[in-house]
Simulated assay, not measured.
Amino acid sequence: MRRGGLRWIADGLFPSGANPHGVLPALLILLALVTGLVDAVSFLGLGRVFVANMTGNIVFLGFALAGDPQMSKWASPVALAAFGAGAWSAGRVIKRATNPRRAFAAATAVHALLVAAALVVALVAGPHTAGPQAAPIATGPQAALITLLGYGMGLQNASVRALGVPDLVTNVLTTTLTGLATDTPGRAALRRAASVAAMFLGALAGAVLLLTTGPAPALAAALALLVAVTLMSRRTH
């Protein structure tokens, strides 16, 4: 999508003339798509674990410790640690940066590299799907994928938070859905609905790709979006 089209989308999410963020709101919608893609890969292909939704992992860890045989006792803690490390790293960069948008562009570039590494791991590990006949991914590649993707999502979440774009989130949607249900309809509701729709579409596409061809195509799609966001975000500051 061209820059002009992205700016048109971004401006449409705010009242006329009230968008001070340039193309960033449209880029955040693309990142919500990335979240849906990678969480589809992690939950369906890596043993019932999220790499973006840490609330789910905390609940899953409780289920695992209670003895649910479908839940891994190690996958959720690995995802939580990787996400936390990514967010911590982004926080250190943000504190030193003179411009949050530069920090966002840098974090997105590193996130793209991490997803590229995850794609290599997925290709080396072999074609796996989440269907009934799927061969499970070995523990080593599984842990590597969770770590790479979780760290990247931590970077993304922290750098997006620092931008301060209202009502556009790329990760957990509970507060967003609450706002949609309780607040007066308007452009804020439109921004929230855009985040929800983007993450849903990302999850749908990621699940279809994973279930039919394995994790590599879904990761490749996430990588392409991250590269596009990186290039476009570098032109906004």
Rank of each mutant, 00 (worst) to 15 (best):
R3K: 10
G5N: 14
W8I: 07
I9Y: 12
A10W: 05
A10C: 01
L13H: 04
H21M: 05
H21Y: 14
P25M: 14
L37I: 15
G47D: 01
V51I: 11
G56S: 13
V59F: 05
L61R: 04
F63W: 14
D68K: 11
Q70W: 12
S76H: 04
A79S: 13
A81W: 11
A85Q: 02
G86K: 02
A87I: 07
A87V: 03
A90S: 14
V93C: 07
R96I: 07
R96H: 11
A97C: 06
P100C: 15
P100S: 12
R102V: 15
A103Y: 06
A103L: 09
A107Q: 04
T108A: 06
V110A: 07
V115K: 02
A116G: 03
A118Q: 03
A122K: 01
L123R: 08
A125I: 09
P127H: 02
H128A: 09
G131M: 11
Q133N: 13
A135I: 15
A138T: 07
A144R: 06
T147Q: 02
G152M: 07
M153K: 05
M153N: 02
G154I: 01
N157D: 08
L163N: 04
G164C: 14
G164K: 14
L168S: 04
L173F: 12
T176I: 12
G179C: 02
L180Y: 08
T182L: 15
T182W: 15
T184A: 15
P185E: 07
R187M: 08
R191Q: 11
L204Y: 14
L209F: 06
P215M: 15
A221P: 01
A221N: 03
A222W: 11
L223W: 09
A224H: 05
V227K: 01
V229N: 00
R234D: 04
